[in-house]
């Protein structure tokens, strides 16, 4: 049976279809968009199946508390003879910049920037996520309301650079020239993110730049102070605050949950509703009004589908004791 004969339920259980919905990449995107353009009369089934798959991927279950996790582990330790020791995993950690190595860049920066004769800019609108493959094979997932600017081409072995506003996830392809790795740089207003080949997320919203590294190494350089450099390790989350002109670094246990947006899901763990509201505004462009004094402080925990505003609001209503209303391009959330 070919996809032409598929029903909604067939699509919803098809492995390749589900991969596109839940873990989209450039190949699945290309395939299904092409398929849809030649089978436009099936868009209803496709949309319906997408929605069912996203709902099915929602997890109504509860996470164990940190306390439970520790207690279970202590029990395991007691029952195993050689007593493997506990290693600290969570917690905030501020690392002074003094700890970061400092490198003088001298004049290397001169002549560094490209002249944008024919620069390319990729932009996304409200609620839009776009997957790009750059000329070097690097994959970029551009979140809603974001833009990525780069030269129309990179010379082989020359510096690879791109300029970001908004949020994007990068999977940088390693490149060698004359036996040396060629670095890839993402510039934001605040920092330059330099890597050789790795996976990381950059977010420039909310008057700051946030970088989360899941694999490999990153060197961060402040735009205002080129001399200062910070070496990031996997699991590090770095915030650069414009107002404070300061970097803060901390460890996160599950980096993937911080950029699950790229797979059409948001992951929350005791996240205040006010932050969720900001996220909705950033992604869909609608202002969110929170009624009641403590509404914004309600904590949201769970994974919800993020590629449809209706689903997001329905999920919030099911997780919290609130009612949502969408009217005149504005969203209201009020306690029940």
């Amino acid at each position: 049976m070919g996809y032409e004969d598929f029903t909604t339920d067939d699509f919803a259980t098809d492995t390749y279809f589900c991969r596109w919905v839940l873990k989209p990449d450039i190949q699945t995107d290309a395939f299904w968009m092409e398929w849809l353009s030649t089978n436009a009369n099936r868009s209803r089934e496709i949309q319906q199946a997408r929605r069912i798959v996203l709902v099915a991927a929602m997890e109504p279950g509860n996470d164990p508390t940190e306390q439970t996790i520790d207690e279970l582990w202590q029990g395991i330790e007691q029952r195993t003879q050689s007593k493997p020791k506990i290693i600290a995993f969570t917690g905030w950690r501020m690392a002074g910049l003094a700890a970061a190595s400092i490198l003088l860049l001298l004049s290397a920066f001169i002549g560094y920037r490209y002249v944008f004769e024919a620069a390319k800019t990729y932009e996304t609108a409200n609620g839009e996520i776009r997957r790009l493959q750059l000329p070097d094979g690097t994959m970029v997932t551009l979140n809603a309301n974001s833009s990525l600017r780069m030269p129309s081409s990179w010379s082989h072995g020359g510096a690879r650079e791109a300029w970001l506003t908004g949020e994007a996830f990068f999977k940088v392809k390693k490149q060698q020239a004359d036996g040396h790795p060629v670095k890839f740089t993402v510039h934001t207003d605040d920092v330059d993110v330099e890597v050789k080949g790795t996976e990381f997320n950059v977010n420039t919203r909310q008057d700051k730049t946030r970088v989360i590294l899941s694999e490999g190494d990153i060197q961060l350089r402040l735009v205002n102070s080129k001399k200062e450099m910070l070496q990031m390790k996997p699991g590090d989350l770095v915030d650069f605050s414009k107002a404070k002109q300061a970097l803060a670094i901390r460890k996160v246990t599950d980096t993937r949950s911080w950029y699950s947006w790229k797979d059409n899901r948001w992951t929350f763990e005791s996240t205040p509703l006010s932050e969720v509201a900001t996220l909705i505004t950033e992604t869909y462009g609608f202002p969110v009004r929170l009624e009641g004094d403590s509404t914004g402080n309600q904590k949201v925990t769970g994974i919800i589908p993020s590629d449809n505003l209706e689903d997001i609001l329905a999920s919030l209503e099911s997780i919290l004791d609130v009612t949502t209303e969408q009217k005149d391009k504005q969203i209201r959330i009020q306690p029940n």
């Binding site: 995107d29 929605r51 839009e128 776009r130 997957r131 449809n308 209706e310």
Partner: peptide, 15 residues
């Protein structure tokens, strides 16, 4: 339970 009216607002992006 859910009106499918909003389905078309799903983001399907063509690159």
């Amino acid at each position: 339970n859910i009106e499918f009216l909003f389905l078309l607002s799903c983001t399907l992006i063509l690159f």
